[in-house]
Simulated scan of single mutants.
Amino acid sequence: MTGTAGLPSPANLALSRKEDFKAFADGPRRTQPDVLTHAQLKALSPQARADYNRSRREWHANLGPLRTPQLAELHEDLWDIIDSNLQDGDKAKGAVAVDAFPGLGKTTSVLAFAREFHRREIAEQGEFTAQGNERVPVCRVGLTGNTGMKDLNRAMLEFFGHPGRHRGTTAQLGQRALDCMLSCEVRLLALDDLHFLKWRKTNGIEVSNHLKWIANEFPVTLLMVGVGLADKGLFSEGGTKGDAVMAQTGRRTTRLGMRPFTIETEKNRQEWRQMLLALEQRVVLTGKHPGMLVDDLSDYLFARSTGHIGSLMTLINRGCQRAVRSGEETLSQDLLDAVKNDEASEKARQELEAALEKRRLTSRPRPAHRKSA
């Protein structure tokens, strides 16, 4: 299956390969299907209705990324860091670690940034280097469970499809990866799920040494994404010799986080409402109406997602799929009650629901703020 202009289908991409990442970065944005009326939907032929429903299934499964305040804040920080990393190759560049709990949109936000950076670099410098090699501004590596240093080097070579990726020592694989980065003028190396690396010692000295070598020798901004990286010891400092090794990584690495949505202040509630407004505009259901999410379901959706955008997007996606399949064509509490969500949000929802029902908490801004929005 292919997408627009012969590109691979977006549903059939593996972003750990440069051809697929390029297709992801260069491909056009999805086109939102039209919202039909009930009469228009009923008037469709069986084939046309099947095609329309399929386009909606794909659309609802890919509603993001939304430009939430969290994503905007992260992107601004990333632009600051990567644009300041224009030092010559003899100088080590500052690294970034996006370290936050699951379900807050770390990977989605980083991929959105990597896409923007790729497009900017290609637009400014062209698709080929001065030596005639393919320009690859971003190398993205997704790590697997219990990955070692040799596995990491091999994964970087897999991204480029290097013929020497299957054999060699850790050092040899690392040198081949460096050659690829230099030839293709990679400027951003994104390592996703860094917590999957083997942390054989509690202070992670082996991991830190290898990442420090990459930061020193590769002319790239190292962007690490993971959960509990601080607890793993990535940024630790202390009095021992091992901790001194870690301290250098800590000094060179900027830690960025992502916060969940909260409803503790008026500003927090306004952010939640604006995000629901943006999400409501993207829902393609014939029974959709203004306020379906922001007025009718605001408290309910916050309780079901506990302010984690990953859980919210999963719930909305699954709810839309059921609304189309069942013919209800709208999102309601009754429909969403039948939709299962991730285990973490389901376990945390009861206490939140009780507080919201008793009006001890609310996700809705005051009317004056709502009107101005």
Results as ranks from 00 to 15, higher is better:
Q270F: 08
D299Q: 10
R282D: 14
R364I: 09
L7I: 11
L301Y: 02
P219I: 12
R255K: 11
G226C: 06
V35P: 01
E185C: 12
N133Q: 14
N53I: 12
Q47Y: 08
G310D: 01
V138C: 07
A155D: 09
L335A: 03
T362L: 07
R119V: 10
R322E: 08
Q70G: 02
D51K: 13
L336C: 00
G319E: 03
S109E: 10
G148E: 03
D83H: 07
G291R: 14
P8T: 04
D83E: 12
K18R: 12
G174C: 11
V227W: 06
R349P: 00
K201M: 14
L173M: 15
P10T: 05
L293Q: 05
G228N: 09
F101V: 13
N62K: 03
E19F: 12
H369E: 15
R349T: 03
I316Q: 04
A215N: 15
L356F: 01
K347L: 10
S109N: 11
G250P: 01
S298L: 05
G174Q: 12
P28D: 09
K42A: 15
F24H: 05
K42R: 13
M149S: 04
S372T: 15
P290N: 12
D243P: 03
D151C: 02
L13E: 02
E237Y: 07
R318I: 00
E116P: 01
I263G: 03
D88L: 10
D34R: 12
R120P: 08
S9D: 15
H60A: 02
S109Y: 05
A354D: 09
L297K: 00
T2M: 13
T170L: 13
A130F: 09
C180H: 12
M156E: 05
H162S: 02
A244T: 01
R318T: 00
V220I: 13
D192W: 06
Y52N: 07
K18Q: 15
W199G: 02
I316L: 02
S345D: 05
Q87A: 05
R282W: 13
M181G: 07
T170E: 14
L234S: 06
